[in-house]
C-alpha cells in the first residue's frame, strides 16, 4: 500500500510525547521517514521503537529547538540517514498558565525561545533543507486556538502562539516564491489531552470531562485528531493550501 507521504522525509519536533508523538507515528504509517526530535532521549527511543514495531521508519535526534546548532545537526542527520527533507512539523512547544502580573521576564523569554524562535529556525533551516532536496515541500507550524483568541492567565503563551500565526503567513508568501515552492500553514488545536495540559492542570478524569462538556462537540481533543490534520496539511490533498490557519478545536473557537 502506498501511503499519503510515501518515502518522504519529515522532521517532527517535540515528537517524544503528546501531539508530536502521535503525529510521528501517523506520518510513518503513511509511508513517511520520520526524524523525531526532542529533549527526552528515553521518550525519543520509545517512539522510534513503536514506529519500527509497525514496520515504519524513524530516527531520534536530541534537539533543543531554540538552538540553531541543534537544528543544523537534526537536518544533517535527517539528510544523511533518511534522505532529502520534504517537510517539517514545528510542534515542540512550552505552555504556561500564569497571570500577566506574575509572569517574569525570564518566563516570557523561555516561552518565546521555544515557541517562536524554535518555529522560526525550523522554517528558516527547513526552507534550506527542502531546497537541497530539489522538490517542493511543506511545513506545518503548530500554533494554538490561543494564538487566535485571548485566554486569561496565559499572556505569554498567547503572545508566542500569535507570533507563530504571523510567522506562518509571511513564511507562506516567501515559501510560495521559492524554487521549488514550500507551503507553510499553521494548525490551531483547542484543548488536546496531552502531557502539556495535564502537566499544568493535573491528569484527572473529572477535568477531562469538564473540558469535553465545554466543547461544542462534547468530546475531549486527542492527539490523533491533530495528527490527522497535520497529515492533511503536509500531503498532496492540500497542494493549493498555504498560509492558512486551520483550527481544529471541537468548535470551541466558533463561539
Amino acid at each position: 500500500m502506498t501511503g499519503r507521504l510515501q518515502d518522504r522525509v519529515v522532521i517532527v519536533t517535540g515528537a517524544t510525547k503528546g501531539i508530536g508523538r502521535e503525529t510521528a507515528k501517523q506520518l510513518a504509517r503513511e509511508g513517511a521517514k520520520v526524524a523525531c526530535t526532542g529533549r527526552d532521549r528515553e521518550g525519543g527511543a520509545s517512539v522510534v521503537a513503536e514506529i519500527a514495531a509497525e514496520d515504519g521508519r524513524a530516527i531520534f535526534v536530541p534537539h533543543d529547538v531554540a538552538r540553531e546548532a541543534d537544528w543544523r545537526n537534526v537536518i544533517v542527520r535527517a539528510e544523511t540517514e533518511l534522505g532529502g527533507v520534504y517537510g517539517v512539523v514545528n510542534n515542540a512547544g512550552a505552555f504556561l498558565v500564569k497571570p500577566l502580573a506574575e509572569t517574569s521576564e525570564a518566563e516570557f523569554q523561555d516561552m518565546f525561545e521555544i515557541n517562536v524562535q524554535g518555529a522560526f529556525l525550523g522554517v528558516k533551516l527547513g526552507f534550506e533543507a527542502i531546497a537541497r532536496s530539489g522538490a517542493p515541500g511543506a511545513i506545518v507550524n503548530v500554533s494554538s486556538l490561543m494564538g487566535q483568541v485571548g485566554f486569561p492567565g496565559a499572556t505569554a503563551y498567547c503572545a508566542t502562539k500569535g507570533a507563530v500565526t504571523g510567522l506562518t503567513k509571511t513564511a507562506a508568501i516567501e515559501g510560495a516564491a521559492r524554487t521549488p515552492p514550500v507551503r507553510v500553514n499553521s494548525l490551531h488545536p483547542g484543548v488536546i489531552w496531552t502531557p502539556m495540559i495535564t502537566g499544568q492542570f493535573g491528569d484527572d478524569q473529572a477535568l477531562a470531562d469538564a473540558f469535553a462538556a465545554d466543547t461544542p462537540l462534547k468530546i475531549i481533543g486527542l492527539p490523533q485528531y491533530m495528527a490527522d490534520a497535520i497529515l492533511f496539511l503536509l500531503g498532496d490533498e492540500s497542494a493549493h493550501v498555504t498560509g492558512i490557519e486551520l483550527t481544529v478545536d471541537g468548535g470551541r473557537g466558533a463561539d
Binding site: T168, P216, L217, A254
Partner: peptide, 23 residues
Amino acid sequence: FAASPRAHFMTGADLVVDGGRLA
C-alpha cells in the same frame, strides 16, 4: 477531508484553499 473521520474534531472551521492569497 472536512467530511471524513480524519476531521473528527474539526467543526466551525474555515478551510481556505487559495494558494496563499489571503495570507
